[in-house]
């Protein structure tokens, strides 16, 4: 399918020689999490600008960073910002720098399958989640969970932890949050796209984790919000910095982003897990486009800049139907300024 779509622009160029001369073909690769909205954006943008074809391959955040660094794609996309070492590598390889542009926001939610527990509204604290995923909390009736859920009768059952087996931006966001709320997690496990899981079994991708949790009683896992909603798996509330148990939804994510928007760094590389604010859902994240500062081909630079501007304005309206949260206005304004750096 992917291979085939690559040839589409060629076919189009053959079929419409009139347009052929002005065709701009742009290739991108990276994060799987924003893939649904990116595909929609690129196809809608193409409809509005028939001379522009943007091809995006959802190969994973790590792959996106690698490919944009090697220069095999025109832009990358990632769910976790590039670290300083990666930025330095980009600079030595490509001469110029690379810019992060947040596009939409998403959330990672704890899902569970425990007979007898309510299908929604089960409360988790950050410490309890870290304890469960570290193996220090092993039973569903642990005092830490009982305290967070007064009045709920908890079964005396062993917890089965399900995590991702493949490297992923979802895992990055999840472990980023656990590192922030648990010093023990930070020192023993840490934060990354793949980590050395102390307990549990690994399943492939969001559908794999969702399926494993669905099929195994007394299990707990984590997936992106949209997968939990689509698969109708019970997902829990998470306690935020202000002590409020927040249900993961778009309002909670946007609240988390608004908290972070006030002190947004110049390069947009910011983690909004454990964000301040009463309504903020604490396991939220931006997802970024990675665009090089310097382009050889000015036509490509011009088109990409125009596309980002479009995604930040008209494109934002498409976010919510696809279960992504919109960017806060302050962030959009800041990004539009930063676009001038792309040359």
């Amino acid at each position: 399918m992917h291979k085939w779509t690559k040839f589409l622009p060629m076919l189009a160029a053959l079929a419409f020689p009139v347009l052929g001369s002005a065709q701009v073909l742009i290739n991108g690769a990276g994060a799987t999490f924003p893939d649904p909205i990116y595909q929609k954006w690129f196809s809608d943008y193409h409809k509005a600008h028939p001379d522009v074809q943007i091809n995006y391959q959802a190969i994973g955040s790590g792959g996106g960073i690698k490919q944009v660094t090697e220069g095999t794609v025109d832009f990358g996309a990632t769910d976790g910002p590039m670290n300083d070492q990666q930025l330095a590598e980009f600079k030595t390889k490509r001469g110029g720098g690379v810019l992060h542009f947040p596009t939409v926001l998403g959330a990672v939610v704890p899902i569970y399958n425990v007979p007898g527990l309510p299908a929604s509204g089960f409360n988790f604290t950050g410490e309890a989640l870290a304890g469960i995923f570290m193996g220090t909390i092993t039973k569903w009736n642990d005092p830490a969970l009982a305290k967070a859920n007064p009045g709920v009768k908890l079964p005396d059952a062993d917890i089965l932890v399900v995590h991702r087996s493949d490297g992923s931006g979802t895992t990055y966001c999840w472990t980023d949050y656990l590192s922030k709320v648990s010093p023990g997690w930070k020192s023993k496990v840490g934060n990354g796209a793949s980590v050395n899981w102390p307990v549990g079994i690994g399943a492939k991708a969001n559908p794999g984790v969702a399926g494993q949790v669905k099929n195994t009683s007394n299990s707990v896992g984590y997936v992106e919000l949209i997968y939990a909603e689509q698969n109708k798996i019970p997902f829990g509330n998470v306690k935020n910095q202000s002590g409020v148990y927040v249900k993961p939804d778009l309002a909670g994510i946007t609240a988390a982003a608004a908290g972070a928007a006030k002190d947004m760094p110049e390069d947009f590389r910011v983690s909004i897990t454990n964000a301040p604010g009463k309504g903020a859902y604490p396991i939220s994240t931006f997802t970024w486009l990675l665009i090089p500062e310097k382009f050889q081909d000015q036509a490509k630079a011009k088109v990409l800049k125009d596309f980002v501007k479009w995604a930040l304005t008209a494109g934002q309206a498409m976010a919510e139907p696809l279960s992504y949260a919109r960017l806060p206005k302050e962030v959009i304004a800041k990004e539009e300024k930063a676009l001038a750096k792309v040359k």
Partner: peptide, 18 residues
């Protein structure tokens, strides 16, 4: 008990290996 195999870990982690 669950386990892991060489081919499986390569396929799972290579793409995102940083």
């Amino acid at each position: 008990a669950p386990g892991y195999s060489i081919a499986a870990v390569i396929a799972n982690e290579f793409r995102e290996a940083a």
